[in-house]
Computed example of a mutant assay.
Amino acid sequence: MTNAEPEPQENGEEELNKAIEELKDVLHEETSGISGEAGSFASNPELVMSIPVEVQIVLGSAEMPVSQLMALKKGSTVSLNRRVGEPVEIVVNGRRIARGEITLVEDDPSRFGVKLTEIAGRASAQ
């Protein structure tokens, strides 16, 4: 694998396309019955906001031959292409949207999260 943006997963992309088509159908049905209004989209933004998306935090990747993959067992370590301290990538439906750093969750130190340090298309704002 390379450091390029992850390829969209075919299954995830199909699910997203299906959700978009369903949304278009719902919006079309709702707006066709409304006269004199701007449409249900403007008056019902929760419809769009409730669409589920898949969020992934990518720590890194590794490339290895199948023989090495098949030799992995419990306790094996896979070296990733990133170093400690390098930013992780936040990927939504196969597209990188941000970068961040691993951090402990304030109200639950047994869990970790990601603090956003850069949003795609914008310079780092701190």
Rank of each mutant, 00 (worst) to 15 (best):
T2I: 08
T2G: 15
T2L: 12
A4R: 10
A4W: 03
A4D: 13
P6G: 01
Q9H: 02
E10V: 10
G12F: 07
E13S: 06
E13P: 02
E14G: 03
E15P: 00
N17Q: 09
K18C: 00
K18V: 00
K18T: 06
A19L: 09
I20H: 05
I20M: 14
E21F: 07
E22N: 08
K24I: 15
D25V: 06
V26L: 15
V26S: 11
V26N: 13
H28R: 15
H28S: 14
E29T: 11
E29W: 10
T31V: 14
T31I: 14
T31P: 00
S32M: 07
S35L: 11
S35F: 15
G36I: 00
G36Q: 06
A38M: 15
F41E: 10
S43L: 08
N44L: 14
N44T: 02
N44K: 08
P45A: 13
L47M: 13
V48C: 06
V48P: 00
V48M: 13
M49R: 09
M49F: 11
M49Q: 12
S50Q: 12
P52H: 03
P52C: 01
P52L: 08
P52F: 06
V53G: 00
E54M: 08
E54K: 15
Q56A: 12
Q56W: 14
L59I: 00
L59F: 07
L59M: 07
G60Y: 03
A62N: 05
E63V: 12
V66W: 03
V66L: 14
V66R: 08
S67F: 05
S67V: 13
L72A: 09
K74W: 07
G75T: 04
G75D: 07
V78D: 06
V78C: 01
S79C: 09
L80R: 11
N81H: 04
N81T: 00
N81E: 02
R82K: 13
R82A: 06
R83C: 06
R83Y: 14
V84H: 07
G85P: 00
P87E: 12
V88E: 02
E89Y: 04
I90G: 00
I90C: 05
I90K: 02
V92R: 02
G94T: 15
R96K: 15
I97C: 08
R99P: 03
G100Y: 00
G100I: 03
E101F: 13
E101R: 09
T103I: 15
D107S: 07
D108W: 06
P109R: 06
S110E: 04
R111C: 09
R111A: 05
F112M: 12
G113Q: 11
G113L: 11
K115Y: 05
T117Y: 12
E118W: 03
E118R: 13
E118Y: 07
E118M: 12
E118V: 12
G121K: 10
G121H: 10
G121W: 05
G121E: 04
A123D: 11
S124L: 03
A125Y: 04
A125W: 11
A125M: 11
Q126F: 12
